[in-house]
């Protein structure tokens, strides 16, 4: 549970840390979108370099990011291999029925691999440098227009921020319960898959029981404090849009133009 880096916040004061979370969220979503339009080696190179530059400017070591990719590596390799064997074109090195190993296949396999890694890296940058609570505010901001479609945006964002707020507690509790059961002779991660699943009961059940209890308390507190859904609300934490953020939007525009130009004329 300690290995998954994505979703963890590292306090810091880098430029990336200081950016408006709304901008960062938009940037990441847009950047990931652009990754699907990259044509040719030059653009791939540019985006990979840009991703690296952004990652390094957060002040978090490269090793940390690489560790973040590790849990997902099998998924990535699966997609890559699938891509390689199903694409044909250019020089063909080997062929056996459905399976081909071709020049284009290898190239697009490499692109797929890069795209996945960049996606993970750039989302990791977002969560590493943005407090979960700021991220919720940013999501709320982006979802706000949905209010006109009668989507309960306020409630959704409250739910999200409560959920995020309790993740660290849940992690702490998991560790505690795990220790307590280990002390009673439990060994985790031994035996076949079924045995391992069964072994989770002594861990998951107490966590459930405790979370339900806490949810009840939380509901009581909301009730007592007079929380009413649908009421008009102001915000305690105000997000501030700065010049840096506008410059960032400029970068996005430039990137879009470059990608489009190369796609059309390249």
């Amino acid at each position: 549970m300690n290995r998954l880096i994505i979703g963890r916040y590292f306090p810091g004061s880098s430029l990336i840390h200081q950016l408006d979370p709304r901008f960062k969220l938009i940037f990441v979503l847009y950047f990931i979108g652009l990754l699907f339009f990259l044509d040719g080696m030059i653009l791939q190179g540019v985006f990979f370099t840009l991703t690296l530059v952004i990652m390094l400017s957060t002040g978090v070591s490269l090793k940390t990011y690489v560790r973040g990719v590790r849990p997902l590596i099998w998924l990535i390799l699966f997609a890559t291999v699938l891509r390689i064997i199903t694409t044909r074109g250019g020089e063909i090195y080997y062929e056996a029925g459905f399976f081909t190993l071709s020049e284009f296949g290898l190239l697009s396999g490499a692109y797929t691999f890069l795209r996945f890694v960049e996606m993970i890296f750039i989302s990791t940058v977002l969560t590493l440098t943005t407090k979960p609570i700021d991220l919720t505010d940013a999501i709320y901001f982006l979802l706000k227009p949905l209010r006109y479609l009668y989507v309960p945006v306020e409630e959704l964002s409250l739910m999200l921020s409560i959920a995020l707020r309790f993740i660290p507690n849940l992690l702490d509790e998991t560790e505690k319960v795990m220790n307590a059961q280990k002390a009673r002779g439990m060994v985790f991660g031994e035996g076949n898959l079924l045995e391992q699943m069964k072994a989770l009961t002594p861990l998951v059940l107490p966590l459930f029981a405790h979370s339900l209890k806490r949810a009840e308390d939380m509901a009581d507190v909301l009730e007592v404090k007079g929380y009413k859904s649908g009421a008009k609300r102001t915000h305690y934490r105000a997000l501030t849009w700065q010049v840096k953020d506008t410059l960032g939007v400029g970068l996005l525009v430039v990137l879009t133009v470059v990608v489009m130009t190369i796609n059309v004329f390249g």
């Binding site: 220790n179 002390a183 009673r184």
Partner: peptide
Amino acid sequence: RKRVGMAFQFPEHQLFAETVYEDLAFGPRN
């Protein structure tokens, strides 16, 4: 771990079984 019995803070958070009996049997079974 067999020789050392360890009660953490709020040890009741470790209870999980359907019955008290089953919970008490958890350690020895391990």
